[in-house]
Amino acid sequence: MNLLVIFIGAALINNFVLQQFLGICPFVGVSKKVDSSFSMGMATTFVMVIAAMVTWLIYNLILVPFDLQILQYVAFILVIASLVQFVEMFIKKVSKPLYDALGIFLPLITTNCAILGLALTAVLKEYNFMETLIYGVGAGIGFTLALVIMAGIREELELVDVPKSFQGAAITMIIAGSLALAFMGFAGII
């Protein structure tokens, strides 16, 4: 039950993009087409789950026993950067079609603050291993959801007569605001 609460909380109520403002850069940058934003979401979810597990292990098995929490940020970002590289090589070897589908999105994930944000929040909330895992899956699905909804709206937006100053990023922000309003409605679920 507790795991379900964590999952729904991460995916909907505290949606990473729309309520916690994590991963805004890919949200603005890659949300132009539904299928590419879906690939981006899946790639991010994948890295998120692995990163959540690995950083949990590093934090609790290496940093805490040796009293090195001050190195937390440096250690986490190094782990995430090398993890992304590793995942990229692994996917390329194992599944070429998947690699082609993800394309340039994989390396970009290193600088997606949703990944580091997830690792840091999981430490802050003192989740155990299983909870961290579920939290990662929920956050990834929430990220994908927000990205795909946004892409769907933006595809329609090309047919609309937007005032000149509002074209591009400005209207995207306003739409994200409306989506965030809608997501606030989930707050009462649990």
Partner: peptide, 25 residues
Amino acid sequence: GVMTQAPGAFITLGCLIAGANWINA
């Protein structure tokens, strides 16, 4: 109240970006 929450942030930034575009144009 909504201005201190997530939607307010997005909408205010959207308006600021639009304002900057307008001034530059």
